[in-house]
Deep mutational scan, measured.
Amino acid sequence: VKVFRALYTFEPRTPDELYFEEGDIIYITDMSDTNWWKGTSKGRTGLIPSNYVAEQ
């Protein structure tokens, strides 16, 4: 598990995607895809765009 911080707010387009706000901490559990990672924030899990976060 790696810890990342959201650089921007992300509004999901599908139920599989995770909503998060700029500054949120996201725990990444799967980075197997280059563009979409699986992450958890505020008790919810979903896909996030990798270019919206920076490693802490």
Rank of each mutant, 00 (worst) to 15 (best):
G43N: 08
K2I: 08
I28D: 00
T34R: 14
W37H: 02
L7E: 04
G46N: 00
G46Q: 01
Q56I: 15
F20D: 00
A54C: 12
T14N: 14
R13M: 11
Y8W: 11
F4H: 05
R13L: 10
V1Y: 14
V1A: 12
K38C: 15
L47H: 05
P49M: 06
F20Q: 00
W37Q: 00
K2A: 11
V53Y: 03
P49V: 02
I26W: 02
G43Y: 03
S41E: 02
D30A: 05
V3P: 10
K2F: 11
G39V: 03
N35I: 14
D16A: 13
I25M: 09
Y52P: 01
R44K: 14
E11I: 15
S41P: 00
S50T: 07
W36I: 06
L18N: 01
I48L: 14
V53E: 02
F4T: 04
G43L: 03
L7N: 04
E11K: 13
R5D: 03
T40F: 15
Y27S: 06
N35A: 13
Y8C: 15
W36Q: 03
Y52A: 14
T14F: 10
M31T: 09
Y27G: 03
F20R: 00
E55G: 07
G46A: 02
D33C: 06
S50F: 06
L18A: 02
F4N: 01
K2W: 14
T34L: 14
I28S: 00
N35Q: 14
N51Q: 12
T45L: 07
R44Q: 11
V53A: 03
L18G: 00
R13Q: 12
S41N: 12
T9K: 12
P49Y: 06
T45V: 11
I26K: 00
E21Y: 06
Y52N: 02
E17M: 11
E21K: 10
Y27I: 12
V1T: 12
S32L: 09
G39L: 02
W37Y: 13
P49W: 05
G23N: 08
N51W: 15
L18D: 00
I25R: 04
E17C: 08
F20L: 07
K42N: 15
A6H: 02
T9C: 06
T29L: 14
S50W: 06
K38F: 15
T40I: 13
D30F: 05
Y19N: 07
